[in-house]
Nucleic acid binder design. Structure first.
Length: 304
DNA sequence: AATACGGGGGC
DNA sequence: GCCCCAGTATT
């Protein structure tokens, strides 16, 4: 009887290799020509990865271009204000990422001589850099072998290898072990697999509309062979939005981003519909997060 | 392990 | 209108 690890690893190493090779070949022809793929610096890759956390490529691309033109090195961003970083972040969402990227720039300038570190432990120590981003920078900025396991790769492996419609909400240790076993030997091959598997998940093997007729794994995909089961029944991950603290926080920041001077938030006409208790709670949260500063001289007044 | 955290484009 | 997206930090 096989162990659980053997079940997850692979029934056939030759199949693993063939699938990985097929995805890499597909990528060379079908991969998008994105500005942070080649022709940029490690800093450009790091900026792109932070921006791409939970935000689609099409929305990131214009902001990334403006950001890199304005702050081409970590030192340039470190010399700017946090407020300017949050403003330049625009409407990408999760503005704490802008703060963390700004903190990244300072840490890189101070601790790493202005150069993005090429060491996974040092990367992981940077604010806003988790396991995914550290691996992505190793692979895409430095061309090194790394495990790059994002939502796209999880879905591709889950379908093609394990026949599952969608991966569970949270990564498991077994899933990481399986994914790590599929990473090719050799830096260049591993980095290409990382980009290719992500791209396949982003363009073809998407969450709700799988374009199996375009897929390089169609002939060997476990999920397709099984008749693509379970997609309709898979749990949704939608989150409430209207009227939530998240929305109110976003509305407050939207006001402060465009203001050149402190704003009386609690008396602002566009926030009249927000309950005072919720408004206060959100403002306190934004202050606690270090995204917003209260102007002490004037009650209810804030700035970035 | 669960929860908080934005915003918009595709369907 | 629902659903998802190159996740991370905190509890």
């Amino acid at each position: 009887m096989p162990t659980a690890a053997q079940n997850l690893a692979s029934a056939d190493p030759a199949t693993d290799t063939a699938r990985v090779a097929a995805v890499r070949e597909w990528f060379r022809d079908a991969g998008r020509d994105l500005p942070w793929r080649g022709g940029t610096t490690p800093w450009g890759v790091l900026v792109s990865e932070i921006m791409l956390q939970q935000t689609p490529v099409v929305r990131v691309e214009p902001v990334w271009r403006e950001w890199m033109a304005r702050w081409p090195t970590p030192g340039d961003l470190a010399a700017a204000s946090q407020a300017d970083a949050v403003r330049a972040w625009g409407r990408l969402g999760y503005p704490r990422r802008a703060k963390r990227l700004w903190e990244c720039a300072a840490a890189i300038a101070e601790r790493h001589g202005g150069q993005v570190p090429s060491d996974p432990v040092a990367l992981r120590d940077l604010p806003g850099v988790g396991d995914y981003t550290a691996g992505a920078v190793m692979a895409f900025a430095f061309g090194r072998r790394a495990l790059v396991l994002d939502t796209n790769v999880r879905r591709v492996i889950g379908r093609a290898w394990r026949g599952e419609a969608l991966p569970p909400a949270h990564q498991t240790a077994a899933e990481r072990t399986h994914a790590a076993a599929l990473v090719p030997e050799g830096d260049a091959a591993a980095a290409e697999w990382a980009a290719a598997s992500m791209e396949l998940g982003a363009l073809v093997c998407t969450a709700r509309v799988a374009r199996c007729d375009e897929c390089p794994l169609a002939r060997s995909c476990a999920w397709l062979a099984a008749g693509r089961p379970g997609l309709a029944e898979a749990p949704r991950r939608t989150q409430p939005w209207h009227g939530t603290d998240r929305q109110v926080r976003g509305r407050i920041l939207a006001l402060l981003r465009v203001a050149s001077s402190p704003v009386n938030v609690t008396g602002h006409a566009t926030l009249e519909d927000v309950e005072p208790g919720q408004l206060d709670r959100c403002l306190e949260g934004l202050v606690a997060d270090g995204l917003v500063r209260a102007v002490s001289s004037e009650r209810g007044t804030y700035e970035l």
